[in-house]
Structure formats: C-alpha cells, structure tokens
Amino acid sequence: MWVGWIEFDVLLGDVHSLKAKRSVLRPVIAEIRKRFDVSVAEVDHQDLHRRAMVGVGLVSGQRAHLVEVLDAVENHVAALPEIDLLSARRRILSSDD
C-alpha cells in the first residue's frame, strides 16, 4: 500500500476578507476532489485572507499511480488563474516504511 500527499502554499488574488477567500477556495477544492478523486482540504493559514495551505491525500496500491495523480494535481493547481502557487511539498510512504 502506498500513501501520498502534497501540500500547496498558495497566494490568492484580489481577496480582502475571509468570506471572499472561501468563495475562491471552495470551488477549487471541489474541482480537485471531483476531477482527481482525492481527499483535499484547506489545512493551514485559515486566519489569513490572502494565503492558504491546501492538502491533497491519496492511497493507492501502486506507487506509479500515486505519483501520476499527485503530478496531475500539482500541474492543475499551478495552472489555475485565480491562485498563485508559492510552493508544493509532497511525501510518499509505503506500508513497509
């Protein structure tokens, strides 16, 4: 069994309140969840209105599939016009670790 996750530190565009932040992040999170069939949530910077840390997690039987999905999610997030990707950090573990 393989478990992988990736965390995205993102900067939101013209956002001046936490309510506006939610209106930008909620559809992004829903789209990632639906398109890639992964677990995804805002995991840090909840009190900042222009920054967000979004975490994506996945379990797979094959490492290659896990890497493929995480790569696709990262490429998707990097291409989103409503956010700027500041950094991405990933981790992959096997059940043998």
Results as ranks from 00 to 15, higher is better:
Asp96Gly: 04
Val24Ser: 03
Arg50His: 15
Gly61Ile: 05
Arg22Glu: 08
Ala20Ser: 13
Glu74Leu: 00
Leu18Ile: 00
Val38Gln: 13
Leu86Thr: 06
Ala72Asp: 13
Leu85Gly: 06
Lys21Tyr: 05
Gln46Ala: 04
Leu11Gln: 11
Ala30Thr: 15
His65Gln: 10
Leu48Tyr: 15
Asn75Thr: 08
Gln46Lys: 02
Met1Cys: 01
Gly55Leu: 06
Trp5Thr: 10
Asp9Leu: 11
His49Cys: 14
Gln62Ile: 11
Gly61Thr: 11
Gly57Glu: 09
Leu86Arg: 10
Met53Ser: 12
Val77Arg: 01
Lys19Leu: 10
Arg51Ala: 03
Trp5Pro: 02
Leu25Thr: 05
Asp96Tyr: 15
Leu25Trp: 03
Leu93His: 12
Val73Arg: 00
Ala64Asp: 14
Leu25Arg: 05
Leu93Pro: 07
Ser87Arg: 08
Arg35Pro: 07
Met53Thr: 14
Glu42Thr: 01
Val15Phe: 00
Leu11Asp: 06
Leu66Gly: 07
Val40Phe: 00
Lys21Val: 03
Trp5His: 11
Glu68Asp: 15
Gly55Tyr: 05
Pro81Gly: 08
Arg33Thr: 05
His76Pro: 09
Glu31His: 13
His76Ile: 04
Glu68Lys: 09
Leu70Pro: 02
Asp84Ile: 09
Val10Asn: 03
Ser95Gln: 15
Met1Tyr: 05
Arg51Asn: 04
Leu70Glu: 03
Arg63Ala: 11
Ala79Tyr: 06
Leu70Cys: 02
Val56Asn: 01
Val69Gly: 06
Trp5Cys: 06
Val56Arg: 00
Val43Met: 03
Ser23Asn: 15
His16Gln: 05
Val69Ala: 03
Arg89Phe: 09
Asp47Gly: 07
Leu66Asp: 14
His16Ser: 12
Leu18Lys: 00
Leu12Gly: 00
Val67Phe: 09
Ile92Cys: 04
Ile83Pro: 14
Leu12Arg: 04
Arg63Thr: 08
Ile6Lys: 00
Gln62Cys: 15
Ile29Tyr: 12
Ala41Thr: 05
Arg50Asp: 15
Arg50Leu: 15
Ser23His: 12
Pro27Ala: 04
Ala78Glu: 08
Trp2Gly: 08
Arg63Ser: 12
Arg35Asp: 09
